[in-house]
Amino acid sequence: MTETEVFLQQVIYGLSNGMIIALVALGYTMVYGIVELINFAHGDVFTLGGFLALTVVGALGAAAILDPNTLSDSSHWLLLVGLVVTAGLFCGFLNVAIDKVVYKPLRRAPKLTQLVAAIGVSFILVNIALFWGGAPMEVFGGGNAAAASKDFPEILEGSNLLGEDSNVVLRLEDLAIFVITIPLMIGLTLFVNRTRLGRGMRATAQNPIAARLMGINTDRVIAATFLIGGFLGGAASVMWAIYNNTISFQMGFRAGMDAFTAAVLGGIGSLPGAMIGGVLIGLIRAMSDQYIETRWTNVVVFGVLILILVFRPSGLLGLKQREKV
């Protein structure tokens, strides 16, 4: 492999992972934009999405209706889209439920109180994922122990799209990530910019009290925000699972921190910022893996996070905001 090919390969890895991170980051940034809460549990909602997807795949496979290995080409994609929608809806409604039960009563409490509650929710979800992983189901390969990583079956065939001779590998998974995430992002942008509810979201983000005075049902707006954020997180978890072919009950912590870093990098509260930030973090990770060392990659990402927060807390695209006294 030449230098350029190595670099191109890392760009492909970086973009694919970055798109997944961007989807999760959107969930952080939307919620933060509306209720100013760092939804610490978002990463673990993502984890549960992965577990649901694995359970669905396993159930379908076990019932021999859809064996992932013997599917025809189009049904692979059908299965993938089905999983994205299922996991997305599951995570979306889970997110709404968490908001209703835990965050809503704390809406007027100090920010740190809300953050601590969110961390608490995160730990509860981690424990649920641990129990889920320990469920006595045949689908969970990769060791019976609850805490062990679970194998996620290969849904898309893994031949090189650039031809067998090419050193640079572009897999169908990479393509799938783009085919699924880009429409989601376009759809989200259109939704926020063109629809009535989207306008309500922007208004609530700017000033919740004024928005309520203008007749916007802010409770509904907030619920919709959690729903959409959760949906994107669930979709991301399916992409993550088919890309890495393994899930574990603690994967949400790392993914969540990457995504939060991406959201902060892009400017928290900004949708295009989260998308750009996600792709950038994906690229930074891939380059660090290749040119520094894999074991230092997390340090690099957290270093970026701290530097951004200290020197440019408004991020790349965020507006400078003075904190209200």
Binding site: A109, T113, Q114, V116, A117, F123, L125, N127
Partner: peptide, 16 residues
């Protein structure tokens, strides 16, 4: 295996 659950519930309930 209930450790995380206990930590999490403790935080959530105290905050709530």
């Amino acid at each position: 295996n209930y450790k995380y659950l206990i930590f999490g519930l403790a935080l959530v309930l105290m905050m709530r």
